[in-house]
Design a protein around this nucleic acid. Structure first.
Length: 272
DNA sequence: CGGATTTGACCCGG
DNA sequence: CCGGGTCAAATCCG
């Protein structure tokens, strides 16, 4: 009964109507599909705002990739060493097999540098930084309070400064800067996240329980968690927000442009 | 009326 | 001194 809402399948699963020798090929093909999905997953990681969750998810994706790789190699080696039956097939098309391995390696290599950077704080400290290029900067489900806006030299668009809406109550250090990046049809915004939220743990990994809320991915867009249920880490006994955590309404106004040719607009060379 | 946003001043590091 | 980041009083808005 659980059908994915949006779907993102790239190829329909091949019918399992394969005889024996082809089963291995089918399995390999499935593995390749999963490998592609892992690659896609890796891209979606970029939309995870919190540092620790991002890294945890990244680790999981890496493990998936590794598992895929080893599974594939196991399958292949089995087929090659295997006696009798599979033997014929294995010898029949060695080229195909090696190409499979190539594909896996390629996807495995996609693990480009993560966008977790560090920046000098006023005290010379290093602040955890993440940069995200998105068309929906308001769609992380946190409550932000704008506290400044600044024109940036050589930048077409101003930079907007936000801090966590609970920064006062919970000493949450999370901040984010949002700057429009271009004026495409879906305009892109460079979102810089600084520090993690300590105010609330939105959804700790809850196994099972209610439907939906598949704890990972799908932050891509949409889905703004309805109520931020301020679940503190369980150590501090603070009287939680209680006061209706109102829905927050954003409005990132796209400033009325200020001319400029936008030629040099070189923001972050390395991203993407 | 209260909370969020606006916006220029202020601060601070390079 | 300059530019980016933050503060905070004024203002806006529901």
């Amino acid at each position: 009964m659980s059908t994915r809402p949006k779907s993102e399948r790239m190829s329909p699963p091949p019918p399992p109507s394969s005889p024996l020798p082809n089963q291995r090929d089918a399995a390999i093909q499935e593995l390749r599909r999963v490998t592609q999905l892992a690659a896609k997953l890796r891209q979606q990681l970029d939309f995870i705002p919190e540092l620790d969750r991002y890294e945890a998810a990244a680790a999981n994706v890496s493990e998936i990739s590794e598992a895929m790789k080893s599974s594939l190699s196991i399958l292949q080696s089995v087929s090659e060493h295997s006696s009798s039956q599979a033997r014929a097939v294995a010898v029949a098309s060695p080229a195909a097999r090696s190409s499979d391995g190539g594909a896996v390696a390629r996807y495995g290599a996609v693990s480009r540098a993560r966008k977790v950077r560090y920046r000098r704080g006023r005290l010379g400290e290093e602040l955890p930084i993440r940069e995200i290029l998105t068309e929906a900067p308001e769609n992380d489900r946190f409550h932000w309070r704008k506290y400044g806006e600044k024109k940036i030299l050589n930048a077409e668009y101003p930079r907007l400064y936000y801090k966590c809406g609970y920064s006062d109550d919970h000493r949450c250090p999370a901040k984010k800067y949002v700057q429009q990046h271009n004026n495409g049809d879906p305009p892109l915004f460079m979102v810089t996240l600084i520090y993690e939220h300590t105010c609330e743990t939105l959804f700790r990994d809850e196994p099972s329980s209610s439907s939906g809320s598949s704890q990972v991915l799908d932050f891509t867009k949409a889905s703004i968690c309805p109520p931020l249920m301020a679940v503190t880490l369980g150590l501090k006994k603070e009287e939680e927000t209680s006061t209706s955590t109102s829905m927050h309404s954003y409005k990132y106004e796209l400033s009325p442009s200020m001319s400029l040719n936008g030629d040099q607009a070189d923001f972050f060379p390395g991203t993407r």
